[in-house]
Amino acid sequence: MNLFDIVGPIMVGPSSSHTAGAVKIGYVARKLLAEPIRKAEILLYGSFLLTGKGHGTHLALVAGLLGMKPDDTRIPHSLELAEQQGIAISFGEADLREAHPNSVLLVLTGIDGRELRVVAESIGGSRINIASIDDLSANFSGDYPTLIVHNQDQPGHIAEVTSMLAHKSVNIAEMRLYRASRGGNAVMVIECDQEVPKESIAWLRHLEGVHKVTYYSLEEE
């Protein structure tokens, strides 16, 4: 926490968790999809579902998906703006078991057909946690450039990714590994101190045994 978490942030109300946090979730998800959104299903859970309407959570999530930040005064009009941009938005309930009380499942489709399922949580203040991507654990905050690699659980992939980062002088701040089963689907979540170059991400995508590479960049669009 710094001084401007005490006086600040500047944000559209009414709630840092249900409004500002929700904008941030939408914003991060949009960047993870990495292409313009054609369709978004927004499935709410817990307190997001129960008190979301009164807090403008649905408007806030859509605003984030449109690329707005939490202090954008257009947040209350996000649904109209989405319609103008021809983005199909639908709302529903998420069937998430034992998730954080402020959770949402976003099912996104891009204009070139890229698909992404993100479960995200608003965990207090306006801090968020991206809990999973495509149903595999992720757990990152969106405060760092983050590389998410889905691969086959087999020897060598971690070394390939980390040596590429070393070669590009990208320092790893934190790294987590998950796998669904031995030899099955595995995930690497790597939070970095520097941005990962675009061509390196493209290179990773072509590696054998790598199923999907998702990247969250802090750079403005």
Partner: peptide, 20 residues
């Protein structure tokens, strides 16, 4: 204004943004 989705400064939170 906060309850009505206007832009405010959380100080220290959005709920208490009117005091300071």
């Amino acid at each position: 204004s906060n309850a009505c989705m206007k832009r405010i400064v959380a100080a220290p939170t959005a709920g208490s943004c009117g005091v300071i």
